[in-house]
Nucleic acid binder design. Structure first.
Length: 585
DNA sequence: GCCGTTTTCGGCCCGACTGTTTTCAGTCG
């Protein structure tokens, strides 16, 4: 069982305990445990066997035993019993806005155990009559039922970003607004967002909130108070209708720095920051940092960090995975420091891109032109290999033709070069889809899994490790095959894959397609610690998709990567040299 | 359930908003 699966079960247990009306702190302990497991460095099975879970904060004796049971037997009787005692419908009710564990419990005790019964009870007016409920709650449930599956779903970052940017510009243009910034997961550049958070400072909060609530893209005003407005937006992005929540919070300009930190989160990061303030007898909330006598004057976010003896922590790192310790100015000698994160302009080229030769929409020439427009020094072409017929994978003859075309084009370029690569399929047994003599003709080779997703974890891990160890493979393509919000990745032990890559000197791709965004940032951090170079690749199938590399930079930043950790920050010469030396005879 | 330079028991971040209430519980972030 993978770390992710174990973490999900612990998280489920937390939810089930809440639904049972258990002590909320006990439930929270399971959520913390889930997070701790997810962030563990290394192979969970190995750590359990070695007894290394003993010193992990957030995992005590009970969780340790339960995790061991899950890892060694794949089962946890406690979880099974808990699951059996809570009706499936209860979990679905939790997805309704405004409905939490307490209300679900009340409904269950009234004999309403699934969504269908809930709808009927609301229509008959029975829910409004229950203690603690009322007309409005009943109406809200009915509205929630109508939009279930639409509102409250997470949205990909490439879809949320343009909506957030437009909204932010609008807020900045409202009269009396002084400062405004995106906050929340969008500012932390998470792969997906549940809502769009904006914080602003201004003199007339009422007018600002009114202007926000009256925007044309607002479908519904969910809440409107003195300092805060919550709406549901409906917008079309790239031809897709997106429904997403948006919150605006208005504070005074003196409060803005503390508010921005607070609403940027993450929640776990905020808790740690607040604990740090408490530890010195201070207090921190969304308005101010107070030393017990007065609010400490803050002009910018960095002032708040400095007041707590911390270096400025970039939003992408605020996940409570060690960034506060790394930023701590009081520990001497500094054991760990915050990384100087990679930036978009550090990228000099990308390696995994398709053309009309296989399933791309643009020709070699068009792709090269677009890459030069982006200021790249080089562009790697890596079309699909022969067995991937659905993507018009290239036969050896066709791909040799492509290599000749690239040579011809390169003779025309000054200060720019097309690099010759391929995205070779990793066959079901871990062999590659081209013979070695052909692979040796490329400048570099990306190896990816596109078929047989249903293998067991053991088989898939072996399959990928074998490809990663192949002396002609330069980098592993999209490491787990996940499609965000649509498909889980295949079952694979990534810790073993990383180990194999580290030993073989094989690089690993950060696939910057916003539908994929893997290697997941948790593992980027781990890859870095193993000395594996990461490669940001847009996996572009058209000219426009070359721009996706910026989302790969987001992932890299969340994974603590510096420019030196990412292969495509190197110059053309360095890249070519590295590819050559990677292939030891 | 976890955790400990105040503690092995008694805490566990904290405020806004809503709706159902006559003073506050539940939800949310």
């Amino acid at each position: 069982m993978t770390k992710e699966e174990v973490a999900e079960i612990l998280d489920d247990i937390a939810t089930l305990l809440e639904l049972q009306g258990e002590n909320p702190f006990r439930a929270n302990a399971y959520r913390n445990g889930a997070r701790a497991v997810k962030n563990l460095p290394g192979d969970l099975g190995e750590m359990v066997r070695q007894g290394q879970l003993t010193h992990v904060p957030g995992i005590g004796s009970t969780l340790r035993e339960q995790i061991a049971s899950l890892v060694t037997t794949g089962r946890l009787p406690f979880y099974d019993e808990l699951k059996a005692s809570v009706p499936q419908g209860a979990l679905q009710m939790l997805r309704l806005p405004g409905i939490g564990p307490k209300k679900v419990r009340a409904l269950q005790q009234a004999g309403i155990t699934d969504l269908e019964q809930l709808q009927q009870a609301c229509q008959k007016g029975q829910v409004a009559a229950m203690k603690g409920f009322g007309e409005k709650t009943q109406q809200k449930i009915l509205e929630g039922l109508a939009f279930l599956g639409e509102v409250g779903q997470r949205v990909r970052i490439d879809q949320a970003t343009p909506i957030g940017q437009r909204l932010l510009q609008a807020v900045r243009s409202f009269p009396t607004v002084i400062r405004a910034e995106l906050a929340g997961s969008l500012r932390r550049r998470r792969e997906t967002c549940k809502d769009i958070d904006i914080v602003c400072s201004g003199d007339d909060a009422h007018a600002i909130l009114q202007a926000f609530a009256s925007r044309s893209e607002v479908r519904q005003v969910v809440g409107l108070g003195d300092t805060k407005c919550s709406v549901i937006l409906e917008e079309v992005v790239d031809g897709h209708r997106i429904v997403i929540n948006a919150d605006l919070r208005v504070v005074t300009d003196e409060q803005f720095p503390a508010a921005l930190v607070y609403f940027t989160g993450s929640k776990e990061f905020n808790i740690q920051l607040r604990r740090r303030a408490l530890a010195r007898g201070w207090s921190l909330n969304e308005y101010e940092l107070n030393d017990g006598r007065r609010a400490i004057p803050l002009r910018h976010e960095a002032d708040l960090f400095a007041a707590l003896d911390l270096d400025f922590i970039p939003p992408e790192l605020r996940e409570d995975t060690g960034e506060i310790d790394a930023a701590d100015r009081t520990t001497a000698p500094r054991s760990a420091r915050l990384p100087r994160l990679i930036e978009v302009q550090d990228i000099r080229g990308v390696f995994h891109n398709h053309t009309t030769y296989s399933d791309g929409a643009a020709t070699l020439e068009e792709m090269a032109h677009a890459a030069r427009q982006l200021g790249f020094e080089y562009l790697g072409i890596a079309d699909h290999s022969q067995s991937l017929t659905v993507a018009r994978g290239l036969s050896p003859e066709r791909v040799r033709q492509q290599l000749a075309d690239i040579d011809a084009l390169n003779r025309k370029f000054r200060g720019f070069k097309l690099l010759k690569g391929c995205e070779v399929d990793i066959l079901v047994d871990g062999r590659l889809d081209y013979p070695d003599d052909l692979l040796a003709e490329f400048d570099y080779v990306v190896a990816s899994v596109h078929t047989h997703f249903g293998l067991s974890e053991e088989q898939m891990t072996e399959r990928i490790c074998r490809a990663v160890r192949h002396p002609l493979v330069s980098m592993l393509g999209h490491a787990t095959g996940r499609l965000l919000l649509r498909r889980e990745g295949y079952r694979v032990n990534l810790d073993r894959v990383l180990q194999a890559a580290s030993e073989a000197g094989t690089m690993i791709e950060i696939n910057a397609q916003p539908t994929r965004l893997e290697l997941d940032w948790h593992y980027c951090k781990r890859a870095k610690s193993l000395g594996i170079p990461l490669v940001i690749n847009p996996d572009a199938h058209s000219v426009g998709e070359l721009n996706y590399y910026v989302y790969g930079v987001d992932v890299a930043r969340r994974g603590w990567l510096e420019a030196d950790d990412v292969f495509n920050t190197r110059s053309l010469q360095e890249v070519q040299k590295a590819f050559r030396t990677q292939r030891k005879p």
